[in-house]
Amino acid sequence: MKKDVISNSINKISDEYIEEAIDELYKNPLDNAPKEIVNMKRKNFYRIAVAMAACLILGVGTIACAKILFNVNHREAKPNEIFSIEYFDQVTGEMETNVWEDAKYVMTFDGPDECNAVEFKEHWLPAAPNESRNAFQTNSEGWRTGLTSEFSEGDVDESMLEYFIEVYYAPQFKNDGAMLILYCTPEEITEDHRSNYDIIKIRGTRDGYKGIEDSNFYIMLNESAGYVIVLSGSSDIETLEHIANELEIRETSNVISSKYYSNHVVFLDPGRG
């Protein structure tokens, strides 16, 4: 069909649909102001206390409160357990499916359908980040959505995969979603709780992929705010913990919703994929 016929036909769609789209796509384009600064060490303790008190006052009770929290269940993958994602292949122009049957470790989550996006600033790193990695956004004030020391091209050695910092959200794991470790074998898993974070520390080994023997994960779950920050890489757990302790984290007004995710499975192994 001729382009101008299509163009003219599309042009005549109802005003209400145009207005609806304008409202959604052009609402407060500059509204990225922070809603609340979260201090890792102290502030969220008060938030949880206030939230719990509010629930008690309202007579809802702590059980109802717990339902909306972001909870993690972590376990070894079952034999032949299958995980898959669908993605749009830019080359073929078709939907493709990737299937994995060899996950080593699985984390599944319960949590709210929506939560606020978070950003962070790092105040200590063991090595300079790779600022050119464009998968992550950094605003003019230095607030980031992710960070890595990984270099995307050329020779890769262990020093270049020292750390990844990524943020995931509860809504992302709706509909049987999961966070997987595929290539690293977890050797030691410990749980911890610090201020408002449930911490999972995973010490793992890899089969010498690109000369890397160790692959570690320091996973921080904020159950009340609905997000999880994953620090991973070849750095040891103590180094990852040091980075985590020096992160300044804030919630933004941007709402993350489960409806924006077509895939609900993510992979944590740095340097792969």
Binding site: I10, N11, I13, Y17, I18, E20, A21, E24, L25
Partner: peptide, 9 residues
């Protein structure tokens, strides 16, 4: 609908 109108209109 928003995505469609955003892209094609």
């Amino acid at each position: 609908r928003v995505i469609f109108v955003g892209r094609y209109w």
